[in-house]
Nucleic acid binder design. Structure first.
Length: 716
DNA sequence: GGGTTAACCTTTTTT
DNA sequence: AGGTTAACCC
């Protein structure tokens, strides 16, 4: 079979990676260097040229979206479905294995996944059982503590008891939390990974089986793997050593979540004969964009060293807009988007990027004012909405009666006369007898401690769940969901309210039925549709669910922008304290990560990049005067073309040289007249001396770049 | 049980 | 500032 087509479209380095012999390979892939391409082509190569069965391939990605995309691209390339190949995030792979081997892993059969919200609730409950004060032991910090340890593979037993009472107490909370999870059949995000890792590590027959099955392991975004993930991958590949990892140390932005950039170095040590391929040719951005991105990232001390280059044009200069305040910044961005759209481009080609989600608000305001469609990524996602979580809690309780958080959530939702007092009694009983709320309720109903009225309402709830569980058995998933929404009274509860909010909730619930109907569940996983759907809801936040597809401007945090590209990018809020973020300035080593974040942001841009900061910003209630981000001063001034904000131009920026403002002939924002183009406004000035070029927006002919020395501009 | 108000808290990133 | 939660009142 002719397989040359797989390599034909690749450059030398890419070809080297894709066509590499068996063994371990490390691909250091710069931003926009065709990393996804290399991965997909590699799989195609394995299947077509090396006759590797898709069954023996495990491909690991960072997000679910990336997994879908990869699978889609491979199938498109080969022209047939990749049946039996495992492609997914490590979380979903872990989940899949735990479902298959729940017994060996020591889990309940119907175990449910605990999302971040549920986890907080459970931590609160743990604190209550231990008689500890929430104020003194903030649940968020406990959550952080637990995750931190699990990501490093540490169980409570691995943590030294120590003498510090605070530390000892934390450890005790961790321990109790684990016991509760175990009792209720709950598994949090980091537990998925740790449990699956321990399963493979301690169970030799299973390990051998998986090592035998997955002859080829491929890993995307390798720089963002944490300790447990790395060890796990290493175990997979320990026998055959066929492991193909792709990563970029300059794009490691998740160390706060346990990701270890050092894994890249460790990899070469653990797999001694690793070949290293560097992808440095960039196919995404213009030369000017790459220059500033390179300039910034060059300030990081600890990096493996890569320099992106392109065969393409230098392109437009990268522009810096100095805004008076955040509103001014937003208006500027809006103005540029409008002219972009007027030039016939799509709105979806534009991305507004920011460091923290709170910044999206102002942009949303101005976009809304002019009815420009936009979409904000991040924030509350479909499966996280309250009403959806209510509905899911019913389904979860049907799937697993031990699931206490779900029980708590819906026992009185919609209200059915089970108040806090009753619940307190149920909780007490559960705590004393070490059983779930469900079992406690059943016991109390048959006991004599509760009043007749309470027994009847609690009994009705128990009956409702039992009845639902029974009725739903033979139905399709969508029917199950619909039944639950109807009989639980959830739909009616929201429907009776005529408010806009409640209306939206009803729509969301209906959308959940649609989601269930469209959910294609993989029968290979050997899981019933309902538990499969519930896991799906927990693992995939439901990005894209319920949003109609429109040509929208894209708003997102820098973190969510990773892996994406846009013709026009606005990198906003480059102020000290905001970006780099205040918190990162306090901790050692975090500044470099912020810089990588900046690099990630810049390299999202294909054709044009605007950077901006505000001199005054109202954030979290108060106005702050921040100095421009240090990242700006790391860009050589001749690489940036500075545009000044309209309102307070007399305030000179403290970075770079603003040649322009004391340039005797023109002033930014000033009006000028040209012999043939007529009147216009100076938008930016670049270079110095006789090479000075100015950009003028003329009323008659639009934007023009002119060499100042020859243009003969007349100041008005 | 539901609605209103007051205090409070959180403000980095998310599988 | 904004949103959420806890407390309080009807």
């Amino acid at each position: 079979m002719d397989v040359s087509y797989i390599l034909d479209s690749l450059n030398q380095a890419q070809r080297e990676a894709v066509g590499a012999a068996q063994g371990s390979l490390l691909v250091l892939a710069g931003a926009g260097s065709g990393k996804t391409r290399v991965l997909t082509h590699r799989v195609a190569w394995l299947v077509q040229a090396c006759q590797v069965s898709p069954l023996s391939i495990l491909a690991v990605t960072f997000t679910n979206k990336a997994a879908q995309e990869m699978k889609g691209r491979i199938e498109q390339m080969l022209g047939y479905p990749m049946r039996g190949m495992w492609v997914g995030t490590l979380h979903s792979v872990a989940h899949r294995m735990l479902r298959a081997h729940w017994q060996e892993a020591g889990l309940q059969q119907g175990f449910q996944i605990l999302d971040s919200d549920d986890q907080i609730r459970l931590i609160k409950r743990t604190l209550k059982e231990l008689n500890l004060d929430e104020g003194y032991w903030p649940p968020r910090q406990i959550q952080w503590y637990i995750h931190g340890h699990k990501e490093e593979g540490r169980r409570p037993g691995h943590i030294a008891e120590g003498i510090d009472p605070q530390q000892r107490e934390l450890r005790r909370i961790y321990q109790s939390y684990e016991q509760l999870c175990q009792r209720f059949g709950l598994v949090d995000f980091s537990e998925l990974l740790l449990r699956a890792y321990e399963l493979i590590k301690n169970n030799e027959p299973l390990r051998a089986r998986y090592q035998e099955r997955f002859q080829h392991v491929l890993v995307d975004e390798f720089q963002d793997t944490n300790a447990v993930q790395y060890e796990w991958l290493r175990l997979f590949a320990a026998k055959h050593g066929n492991i193909f990892v792709v990563g970029d140390d300059d794009q490691s932005i998740y160390s706060w979540r346990g990701a270890r950039i050092e894994n890249i170095l460790q990899f070469e040590r653990d797999f001694p004969n690793t070949n290293v391929v560097r992808l440095e040719q960039n196919y995404r951005s213009t030369g000017n964009i790459l220059s500033i991105a390179n300039a910034v990232i060059d300030h990081n001390q600890s990096r493996m060293g890569k320099k992106l280059w392109t065969r393409g044009d230098q392109g437009d200069p990268v522009r810096l807009y100095v805004a008076y305040n955040e509103m001014d910044e937003a208006r500027f961005v809006l103005d540029r988007i409008q002219s972009w759209v007027e030039q016939g481009h799509a709105r979806s080609e534009v991305a507004i990027l920011y460091r923290s989600n709170a910044q999206s608000r102002v942009f949303e305001e101005v976009l809304m004012q002019v009815n420009m469609p936009y979409r904000v990524y991040g924030g509350l996602r479909f499966f996280e909405r309250a009403e959806i979580k209510d509905a899911l809690a019913y389904l979860r309780l049907i799937a697993s009666r031990q699931d206490d958080p779900s029980f708590e959530r819906i026992v009185n939702m919609p209200t059915r006369g089970i108040g806090n007092r009753t619940l307190e009694q149920v909780r007490d009983y559960a705590r004393i007898n070490q059983v779930s709320l469900w079992d406690a309720s059943r016991a109390l109903i048959h006991g004599s401690e509760l009043s007749a009225r309470v027994i009847s309402s609690l009994g009705r709830f128990i009956d409702l769940i039992e009845r639902l569980a029974h009725q739903v058995e033979e139905q399709t998933l969508a029917d199950q969901v619909e039944q639950v929404l109807q009989l639980s009274g959830l739909l009616a509860h929201f429907a009776k309210d005529k408010g806009e909010k409640a209306q939206g909730r009803v729509e969301n619930l209906e959308e959940l039925i649609t989601a269930a109907r469209n959910y294609e569940h993989d029968t290979e996983e050997g899981l019933d549709p309902l538990p499969a759907f519930l896991s799906h809801a927990a693992l995939e936040s439901g990005e894209g669910q319920g949003e109609e597809w429109q040509d929208c401007v894209q708003l997102m945090s820098l973190h969510s922008a990773k892996g994406l590209e846009f013709p026009l990018v606005f990198l906003t809020g480059l102020e000290e304290g905001l970006f780099p973020h205040q918190r990162s300035l306090q901790e050692q080593g975090r500044l470099e990560e912020e810089r990588r974040l900046c690099y990630v942001g810049m390299t999202r841009a294909m054709q044009a990049l605007y950077i901006s900061y505000a001199e005054v910003r109202r954030l979290y209630g108060r106005e702050s005067y921040a100095s421009p981000s240090r990242f700006l001063s790391e860009i050589p001034s001749e690489m940036l073309s500075i545009v000044r904000g309209g309102i307070r131009t007399e305030l000179a920026p403290s970075i770079g040289d603003v040649e322009s403002s004391d340039n005797h002939q023109v002033k930014l924002g000033g009006r000028v007249r040209h012999n043939s183009f007529g009147d216009g406004v100076v938008l930016s000035v670049e270079g110095r001396g006789e090479h000075t070029r100015v950009q003028v927006n003329f009323e008659s002919v639009g934007n023009k770049w002119l060499v100042l020395a020859y243009a003969n501009l007349e100041k008005l």
